[in-house]
Design a protein around this nucleic acid. Structure first.
Lengths: 167, 167
DNA sequence: ATATCTGCAAATCATTTGCGAAACC
DNA sequence: GGTTTCGCAAATGATTTGCAGATAT
């Protein structure tokens, strides 16, 4: 038997632990969202988080997911990302400074870190007269040998439009 | 007398030239927006472009600015940027691959280019099994010696919220 | 002439928020 | 028990769009 990353034997998920440590009031829905987050290895948007949470307990509303995700971001437990596509995506704060490579065909996100890049960024900022507070690097790439299956341009109504489209 | 970058003696602005070259129908409002863009050295958002255009001719609507800016982006004349703050910002396509340093206190954007970074990005993508299609690097920094004047957190209603706030 | 563009207002979309009811410490 | 959170629906803010009239080629 393997215990999911979320809980050790019906216990407390990693994210829930962090919430408790910061003194957050743990409601059922927060516990649920924490568990969903702990089980997620990807970078879901709010809609997706809601879907996953709703699947486990349909008594949760998307407004609560929005509120919780924002709260956790303010508490430094989550980080908001914008990869284009008009929706914010979230990932747990943790693993040191890393960056993202977005597969332009599938929208999949791959994480990576690179020491040389960290040093270079700091150096560039200094050259311009700034102390580096933060930085982000996003690579958009295509899997090496392959013909892409010609993705249809979605162009859906309303707002939402950004550098590139998401999956 | 110096001629503004937009037009050589009542003539055609740089951006308008590009529009004509791509065979766009040149209406008065497009000509105006083209001129405003040609005169802008910064990275204005649509609201700001509308303000600048409206100042020259109040017979223009913001819907037209949105439509034009999108058209020019599709034609490869403009590039859309997202520096956080919930509004897209635009800059003319031109000067080779460059990146941005955002002053976290003022929201000002400084452009820079760095050969070593270009090479490094390509190398990282390759290491991960991808051909680099595009990439973006954004540095967030604070001017070197100085105490920041403690900016109040805006937190305005509605949507709009991103990594960092804009100026 | 005629296909395209513009203005206006209404529609969308992601996200936030007011309010009374329910839950946590 | 009092404060905080929740669900719902309505409000927001950025952006898009339908439609009738105005325009560029």
């Amino acid at each position: 038997m393997d215990t999911p990353a979320s809980a050790d034997r019906e216990g407390i998920s990693r994210i829930e632990r962090l919430c408790i440590d910061r003194g957050l009031k743990m409601t059922g829905q927060r516990r649920l969202i924490a568990r969903v987050l702990s089980d997620s290895a990807d970078h879901p948007d709010v809609e997706e988080l809601y879907r996953r949470a709703h699947a486990r307990d349909s008594h949760i509303s998307i407004a609560t997911v929005y509120r919780t995700v924002r709260l956790l971001e303010e508490k430094g437990i989550l980080e908001r990302r914008d990869f284009g596509g008009g929706r914010a995506r979230y990932e747990p704060t943790e693993h040191g400074h890393h960056h993202h490579l977005i597969d332009v065909d599938t929208g999949k996100v791959i994480e990576f870190a690179d020491e040389r890049h960290e040093a270079l960024a700091k150096e560039i900022a200094a050259r311009l007269g700034f102390e580096l507070v933060d930085h982000r690097l996003e690579l958009f790439g295509r899997r090496f040998p392959e013909a892409k299956p010609a993705a249809p341009a979605p162009r859906r109504g309303g707002r939402a439009r950004n550098g590139r489209d998401q999956a």
